[in-house]
């Protein structure tokens, strides 16, 4: 474990806490894409298949349980909770999951490290995580004004994988033979998707104005 990866994990956790705070305290999911939340639940479900068979560390297991638990409960809140579901912007959150799930699965079948069920699903989860934010970014562009909590949620979510990129560079130079081409490519694509969001996020923060993504 290095400081970059720890910061990445905590930033990721922070994004989930911000989202849960928004949904749980003000009982609203306005501006949040249910499609993206469902894709994240699928990412964790296919990424952590080995949670009960492979023990890395207490930290690793606890964080996996947190990510699994929070992602599924957020989907539950947005689908089932009597008040939260009313604030779900169904008409604008229309991005089709299978446009992302299918290509990622096909790519995982072709481009993987080992052709086993677990490895293909793990690779699928990497590719899917890279693009899972797209429905959320589309929704942000369609939403008139983006509230602070939603903006901060997306910011932390984008920043976490950026810290992972630094972690991979660090591990490449400190651990010989540390190579994760597939993980690195997916991580670069994932972070690149946030570049324009980061630009508008910092601009709104600098000019102290409402975050607005051009349509």
């Amino acid at each position: 474990m290095n400081i970059f990866r720890l910061t990445g994990d905590l930033t990721h956790l922070m994004s989930i806490i911000v989202l849960l705070l928004k949904i749980h305290t003000i009982k609203s999911c306005a501006g949040i894409s249910l499609k993206t939340q469902e894709l994240y639940a699928l990412v964790f479900a296919t990424r952590y298949l080995d949670i009960f068979t492979t023990y890395i560390s207490l930290y690793n297991t606890v964080m996996k349980l947190i990510f699994l638990g929070t992602s599924f409960s957020i989907v539950w809140y947005m689908r089932r909770h009597k008040t939260v579901r009313l604030s779900y912007d169904k008409n604008n959150d229309t991005f089709r999951h299978y446009f992302l799930v299918l290509p990622c699965f096909l790519l995982a079948l072709v481009l993987n490290n080992r052709f086993t069920v677990r490895e293909v699903l793990w690779t699928f989860s990497l590719y899917l995580e890279a693009v899972a934010i797209i429905p959320q970014l589309v929704l942000l562009q369609r939403s008139k004004n983006v509230d602070n909590l939603t903006g901060n949620y997306v910011f932390f979510l984008g920043a976490y994988r950026g810290f992972y990129l630094i972690n991979w560079i660090y591990r490449y130079f400190t651990e010989n033979h540390y190579r994760r081409w597939i993980t690195w490519m997916a991580g670069i694509v994932q972070t690149a998707l946030y570049v324009d969001f980061f630009y508008y996020y910092f601009k709104s923060w600098k000019n102290n104005e409402k975050l607005k993504l051009p349509a």
């Binding site: 990866r5 996996k64 990510f67 080992r114 033979h177 190579r179 994760r180 993980t183």
Partner: peptide
């Protein structure tokens, strides 16, 4: 080679 067998990251 990408020995991604040990998956120690989240």
């Amino acid at each position: 080679e990408d020995a991604s067998s040990e998956k120690d990251e989240l």
